[in-house]
Simulated scan of single mutants.
Amino acid sequence: MRKADLVNRISDKTGIPKVDVLVTLETMFKEVKDTLASGENIYIRGFGSFITKKRAAKIGRNIKKNVAVHIPEHYIPAFKPAKEFSMEVKKLKEPKKDSGPGEDADD
Rank of each mutant, 00 (worst) to 15 (best):
V89C: 00
F29P: 01
R45L: 10
T14E: 04
V69K: 09
K93M: 00
G60R: 12
K93D: 04
V19Y: 11
N41R: 10
D107A: 13
E31Q: 15
S11D: 05
K80W: 01
L25W: 00
D104Q: 15
F50S: 05
E94I: 01
K93P: 00
A82K: 07
P72Q: 07
M28L: 15
K18P: 04
A56N: 14
E73G: 15
A105P: 00
V32K: 02
K33G: 05
P81D: 11
K93L: 06
K90L: 12
K3C: 07
K30W: 05
P72R: 10
A37Q: 13
L25D: 02
S11M: 05
G60N: 04
N8Y: 00
I10C: 03
N62M: 02
E31L: 13
H74P: 04
I76W: 10
K90D: 12
E31W: 04
V23E: 12
R55V: 05
T14V: 02
K83T: 14
D104I: 11
K3Q: 03
A4F: 00
A37R: 14
F79G: 11
G60V: 07
E26A: 13
T24N: 12
H70Y: 10
E40R: 15
P95L: 06
M28Y: 03
D106P: 06
M28W: 07
G48L: 03
Y43Q: 09
G102L: 03
K97P: 08
E84S: 12
E88V: 03
I42L: 15
K93C: 00
I71T: 08
M87T: 15
T14I: 05
R9C: 07
N66S: 12
R9K: 15
D107C: 11
Y43R: 09
I51K: 13
E84D: 07
R9F: 00
M28A: 11
M28E: 03
D106C: 02
T35R: 01
P81T: 04
D104P: 13
K54L: 15
H74S: 12
L92G: 01
P81M: 03
A82D: 09
S86T: 15
V7E: 01
A78I: 07
E84M: 07
L22K: 15
E31V: 13
D98P: 02
I71D: 13
D20Y: 12
L25I: 14
V89D: 02
R55G: 02
